[in-house]
Amino acid sequence: MNRGILAGTAVAVVVALATGCTPDGSGPGTDQGKDKGKGTVSQAPTTSSPSASATPSPSASASATSDDKPSSPTPSASATTGKPKREYLMGDGDESAQVRELQARLRQLGFFDRAPTGFYGTLTTASVKRFQARRGLPETGSVDETTWRTLLSVTRKPTAEELKPSTTNKLDAPDPRCMTGRVMCISKETRTLAWMIDGKVVSSMDVRFGSENTPTREGLFKVEWKAREWTSTIYHTPMPYAMFFSRGQAVHYSRDFAARGYAGASHGCVNVRDKAKLSALFDQVKVGDKVVVYW
């Protein structure tokens, strides 16, 4: 046992360390077994640091290989340049503030289920086609004047939060157990963590969970102990800003999640990929605060 752990949390630490927790989804493993770990343990919150919003930025190379080309009206050649003349306002491969607004307006209607990125790729093309089909317009997948005017007429101007949401994933409706007190409200369905105080969302972030073989436990828990710096001796990987809540399972920052997204999984812990947001949350959360993990 790390002798730096304060006496007041000795019992909780012994329980947590007896089961272990893996920090990153870099390979197969299990949450069972001893994980004494090493690092510094924090008992009380310090002054929080500003939270940074994370807006995904698409890869140009990825879009070139994975995005299907939208079906658009056959362009005519320009008499002056010889280049095809576009007959639409926005389409596949475009990246602009107007595309971000398009995505936000489509999201208002339920046709776009991601955070706006400003990049027009496969998902946006499919969303536009669904909207066009619903409104009886030609299903081109690109936005012409008629499509844009129709969309403007049935939506409102997006707010700053709608254009650049605090999470990539849309927040779930809070579990009833999250509506009182101080609680990390963690939804497996939407893969989000909402830090709530007396029923109000203070901050939120995307999260990742354990695999089918090593699932993240569900239920009502409390923060047993905290460690600003911690390293798993089972997997030999760092677990910054760890907040342990269930026999070794913890909310913590994951470099693997930040790098690979949902291509990986943890071995039971709740991974966070936004380090700045989690740092601010770590400073606010106190030992004893509630943790709710639910579907």
Rank of each mutant, 00 (worst) to 15 (best):
185 C>G: 08
247 R>Y: 15
223 V>K: 01
256 D>W: 11
230 W>A: 13
188 K>R: 15
199 G>F: 09
213 N>M: 06
193 L>E: 05
213 N>F: 07
211 S>E: 03
253 Y>P: 07
236 H>R: 15
240 P>R: 09
239 M>D: 05
218 E>C: 09
241 Y>V: 00
192 T>A: 03
195 W>G: 00
191 R>L: 13
242 A>Q: 07
228 R>S: 12
238 P>E: 13
226 K>T: 01
231 T>D: 10
215 P>V: 03
250 A>M: 12
231 T>G: 04
212 E>M: 09
239 M>G: 10
228 R>M: 05
256 D>A: 12
180 T>R: 14
216 T>C: 04
178 C>W: 08
195 W>E: 02
226 K>F: 02
178 C>I: 03
250 A>N: 07
208 R>G: 10
258 A>E: 13
226 K>E: 02
205 M>Q: 05
237 T>Q: 15
215 P>R: 06
216 T>H: 06
231 T>I: 11
229 E>R: 12
253 Y>C: 06
180 T>K: 15
255 R>Q: 13
187 S>F: 07
182 R>Y: 08
258 A>S: 08
258 A>Q: 11
230 W>S: 12
255 R>L: 09
217 R>T: 14
251 V>E: 01
252 H>C: 02
197 I>V: 15
258 A>D: 10
220 L>M: 14
180 T>I: 09
212 E>N: 11
242 A>G: 09
217 R>A: 15
221 F>T: 02
204 S>R: 03
237 T>G: 13
235 Y>T: 14
199 G>D: 10
237 T>I: 09
236 H>T: 12
254 S>D: 07
205 M>Y: 02
215 P>F: 04
240 P>T: 06
249 Q>K: 06
243 M>R: 01
195 W>N: 01
248 G>V: 03
243 M>I: 02
179 M>R: 15
232 S>C: 13
179 M>F: 07
254 S>V: 05
179 M>P: 05
233 T>S: 14
215 P>Y: 07
200 K>F: 10
247 R>Q: 15
